[in-house]
């Protein structure tokens, strides 16, 4: 039930945010602070999400097969490998290290 509520609020909220751009006066978004915040926010949130998804389980810090997967993803992104290759190779590496 709570899961349903989370799904519905996320759906409604994100749809409302999209619509807000068409309604809110654009000068409010054109201040320097707003621009910088909106530019940096996705980068920092996703970085935090990556760090926690790879190096934590619950409330514990962990170094396991996921770190190997992340390392492979970083290398492949640095050499500009295609998206699908990055994801599949990272998963295969993590699965391989986990099995080992």
């Amino acid at each position: 039930m709570k899961l349903w509520l989370a799904v519905i609020i996320a759906c409604a909220g994100c749809a409302a945010l999209k619509l807000a751009g068409f309604v809110v006066p654009s000068r409010l978004l054109e201040t320097k602070v707003a621009q910088r915040t909106l530019e940096a926010l996705p980068v920092t949130l996703l970085s935090a999400l990556i760090a926690v998804s790879v190096f934590a389980t619950g409330n514990h810090l962990m170094l396991d097969s996921r770190a190997a997967g992340l390392a492979v993803a970083l290398i492949l992104v640095a050499i500009r490998a295609p998206f699908l290759v990055v994801v599949v190779a990272a998963c295969a590496t993590a699965a391989g290290v986990h099995a080992f």
Partner: peptide
Amino acid sequence: ATTGLDVAGPAAFIALLAPRLNTVRMRLAA
């Protein structure tokens, strides 16, 4: 963990973030 799917999200995000990490400032923030 056995399928490696636990890194599918992080790997996808690394690929999505890469073009935005083009300045030292953004890399440090990340």
